[in-house]
Amino acid sequence: MSDTSKPMDPSRRQFISKTGAATGAAMIAPGVFLTTPAQAKPADQPVSNDKRWGILVDTNKCGNGCNACITACEEENGWGSANPSEDHSSPEQKAQWIRKVTIRDKATQHVTTLPLMCQHCENPPCVDVCPTGASFKREDGIVLVDKHICIGCRYCMMACPYKARSFVHEDLKDQKPWAPRGKGTVESCTMCVHRVDEDGTPACVEACNATAGGALRFGDLYDENSEISRELKQYGGKEIRADLNLNTGVRYRGI
């Protein structure tokens, strides 16, 4: 488990030990570590723009009714079912960092499902509109909210074309130390930045590849040898709302 220094929750660990070789498979399946040897960034070095992290979603492999990525994200980052303290908020008010969206083509009736989360745009509208600069993009392309200087104006939520951001509507307890979240601030998918910084893979990608269809690829979009870049080159990948020219870090295949 050198790819992540975070503890996994006991149930997942149990699963891995029960399935024997799955520990190895979980690492191999994302492919990133096989093709590009793990080169952990030293902890005291800042991230650089040599890399741009991205996720490719193959909707053909995304199972209708499968929620593995969402459950993994909830567990990892302590929201939804993994944080019972958010119990006053209505379903409309509860935070959702990632959600499964089902789309049906009105002309052909073809149904597709896909996970939708922060698209980590190169030109993020949420960052442009934020009055304090709390909404920002890291050098490596990950879009985050600095909750220390977020005043809770929610303008970023108005600006996001993907409804990827949530506002925390009540006091929370028992947050994960690596995923702080609290009342009166805005939050969204962090691409599991705490894992990425220690050379890991986002929880959703890990879960999809370990237990589900293997629809998610994570990797460096600037590295042309990374699996995500090669797949993108070979099969292509679309942006949602490409008309806005945001150059998203999350791409979709099969829509």
Binding site: V127, D128, V129, P131, T132, I151, F167
Partner: peptide
């Protein structure tokens, strides 16, 4: 109505000049 009205000082000291909201302040 802000999520953090107690951080008004933040709104006055941190500016993102690309934000029309900041300009409005």
């Amino acid at each position: 109505d802000l999520g953090h009205p107690d951080r008004l000082i933040v709104a006055m000291t941190y500016y993102n000049f690309k934000s029309i909201f900041a300009w409005n302040i």
